[in-house]
Simulated scan of single mutants.
Amino acid sequence: MGLLLNLLTLPLAPVRATAALAEQILRQAEQEFYDPARIRRQLEDVAALRDSGVLDEAEAEALEEELIARMLAATERREREM
């Protein structure tokens, strides 16, 4: 039965492989997006841009709020996984 099912669904193999690859890419992207070290570096970059005058106070605060929200979400995700 398993061999017959594999033969019948063989034309779908590229679709399954593509879906598996897309899932792996999504996991990697989420891992990088919620990486606390990366978020800290980005917060430091925002501070440096503010200090150099590239970003005004409002822009810097908006970026910092977004990054802090990501940091909190990353913490919640790690707690759920435990």
Rank of each mutant, 00 (worst) to 15 (best):
A22E: 10
F33P: 00
E66Q: 14
I68R: 09
A60C: 10
D51Y: 00
T75A: 14
L10C: 00
E76H: 13
L7D: 02
G53A: 09
A62C: 04
A22I: 00
D35V: 11
V54L: 13
L55K: 06
E64R: 07
D56V: 03
E76T: 09
L10H: 04
E81W: 05
A19H: 04
L43F: 01
E57H: 10
P14W: 04
V15Y: 10
T18D: 09
A19Y: 03
E79L: 13
A69E: 13
Q42P: 00
E23H: 09
Q24H: 07
A73D: 09
E61L: 08
L72N: 15
Q28Y: 00
G2E: 13
L12F: 01
L21Q: 15
V46D: 02
L21N: 13
P11F: 06
T9C: 01
A48T: 01
A48I: 01
L67G: 03
T9P: 01
S52K: 08
M1S: 14
E66A: 11
E32F: 14
A48D: 07
I39R: 02
M1I: 03
A58K: 11
A48N: 11
G2N: 13
E64C: 02
D51G: 06
E32C: 10
M71Y: 14
A29Q: 05
A73Q: 14
P11M: 12
L12W: 03
E44S: 11
R70T: 08
L12Q: 15
L21T: 14
P11N: 11
V15N: 03
A22S: 13
M82I: 06
E32A: 15
L12H: 03
E64S: 08
P14V: 12
Q31R: 15
A13K: 10
E64L: 00
L26F: 09
G2A: 08
R27H: 03
E65Y: 00
I39P: 01
M82E: 07
T9D: 00
M1R: 08
T18S: 12
D56I: 04
E23P: 00
F33R: 15
R27I: 01
L55S: 07
A69H: 12
R27P: 00
A69G: 12
E81I: 02
R41C: 02
M1W: 04
T75P: 00
Q24R: 12
Q24D: 07
D56G: 12
A17C: 00
I39L: 15
R16A: 13
E66K: 06
L4I: 13
R40T: 06
L21H: 15
V54H: 10
R38T: 11
E32K: 15
L72V: 13
Y34M: 04
A48H: 10
E66M: 07
A29P: 00
M82A: 13
R77Y: 03
F33D: 07
L10A: 11
L21E: 15
R16P: 00
D35K: 06
Q24C: 02
P36M: 04
